[in-house]
Design a protein around this nucleic acid. Structure first.
Lengths: 266, 266
DNA sequence: CAGTGTGAAAAATTTCACAGCT
DNA sequence: AGCTGTGAAATTTTTCACACTG
């Protein structure tokens, strides 16, 4: 990679599709694993299998980053790890604060996956005075009263909300007011934030509900297999759409329009 | 298996778009809140604001379920709650097992959001003999040795994996072997499952990485902000739909649920 | 050859805008 | 009037398939 000093051609990274951005961490994880095994290069086919996507998609994704592969050979693992890390902004340190140190907040504080990716838990904040000073994952919990000061002193721009739903918006407002511009929300609430602030949410029960939807379908129909995934052959490759794809008309579903004896609470 | 890749748009039958399915839980949550406040009806505009999406999308989503609204009036809250619940399969009880009772597993066991949506934690399973019998969230932890029996005895079809990455695939195989057909994976690994089995993943560090990507971009074009057009990546969710909301822009940068993989490192 | 990079086609999803009920 | 339901257009994402290169 003699390109070490080549400055990125301004034309390059403009507008990477959101769908692609969402997959970069996945590629990075797979590449990191290869790197630890000292694998020098990978083909799009192999890497795609390891990341659980198909190779065409992976190549297209990488094409948005630039031409980092070698035709006939594949990609240099180390180089790609670096490029993706840089693209994701992981070559710098991101101090984050976790607000709401209950079961989930504590689990997040103990979660080792953050530190290994450039995220540093700068502080833990909770509204319960009784928790103040108590260490969780080796970090002393601080009271909500000092939230603004903590954010400012540590130059935090990313906040994690793990409070009960009722407190989420208020906490969010304070975080934003103090300068946070990216929020990861675990509370089951839709947060209102001003333009320029990013919010991503993780809702555990929503994921289960989506699974239940498909599960219900499976029960309704019998065995509907049907391989649909394009690439088979490789080990990994969980195909989520496998079931979603096949949905035989069959069963006269409930009439689309109201006549069905609507069972419903009143 | 390649081949036979004839596109079958026909199979659409009762097919609700995956993107829509992913939003149904969101609507349900908003509707439930309205229901608790005894609000009888809502317009697509109001409900959309509460769910963090725009009204056109909401109406289109509902159109896949049927015509449950009343022109000129809106939707009957109770009726819609019922219809969506039924569509999601939440009118029935879903016993689930959580495997891996570490910090995260324990947090999940204690998470109240499951029970309230029809999910019942039927059992907690861990490989550590020392944990056996110890109650977590009021439920005694059982040893992995009995995994198959537990699944069968309880008729479990949905499993949650919260083990370290290294154990995930093995646990997954056993769950599937015992009859589980839907898996929510919190381990930072791509799981291989046979056709017919659904897998959804949640990865905390991936969400943070996506935020970091956008955060980095913001820093780059620091100027006094302003809707600097030209930039491809769009930061926070636009507040275009906040029109009906209120002063603060309502934005819910909901993750592309369709497939944002998320996993967490151990 | 093997395998990347990519126009072009296909599919999925979102947004528009307005006809049509109530 | 007010608001839903929905074709049609616009946009995004995925998949194809093959030219091109090391």
């Amino acid at each position: 990679m003699a390109t070490g000093r080549t400055h990125r051609p301004a034309t390059r990274s403009r507008g990477i599709p959101e769908a692609t951005v969402a997959r970069l961490p996945l590629y990075l994880r797979a590449l990191t694993a290869l790197s630890e095994r000292s694998v020098p290069t990978v083909s799009s086919e192999e890497l795609a299998a390891a990341a659980g996507v198909n190779s065409a998609k992976l190549r297209k994704d990488f094409s948005y980053l630039g031409s980092y592969g070698t035709r006939g050979v594949g990609y240099d693992v180390e180089y790609l790890v670096y490029q993706i890390s840089r693209e994701l902004g992981l070559t710098q340190d991101w101090p984050v604060v976790i607000v709401g140190i209950g079961n989930l907040g504590a689990a997040l504080a103990n979660y080792g996956g953050f530190a290994s990716r450039g995220f540093r838990v700068a502080a833990l904040i909770d509204a319960d005075p009784a928790m103040a000073g108590k260490p969780v994952a080796g970090i002393p919990v601080q009271h909500t009263d000092d939230l603004e000061k903590i954010i400012e002193d540590n130059g935090v721009s990313i906040g994690v909300i793990a409070t009960p739903a009722g407190a989420a918006q208020q906490v969010c407002d304070r975080l934003v007011g103090a300068g946070v511009t990216s929020i990861l929300n675990f509370a089951p609430t839709v947060l209102s934030v001003p333009d320029g602030v990013d919010v991503r949410k993780v809702d555990l029960s929503i994921e289960l509900q989506i699974l239940a939807f498909h599960e219900q379908r499976k029960a309704g129909e019998e065995p509907a297999l049907e391989t649909a995934a394009g690439d088979g052959a490789q080990p990994a490759a969980a195909s989520r759409e496998a079931a979603a794809a096949a949905a035989p008309a069959a069963s006269a579903d409930q009439g689309p329009d109201g006549d069905v004896p609507a069972v419903m609470p009143a």
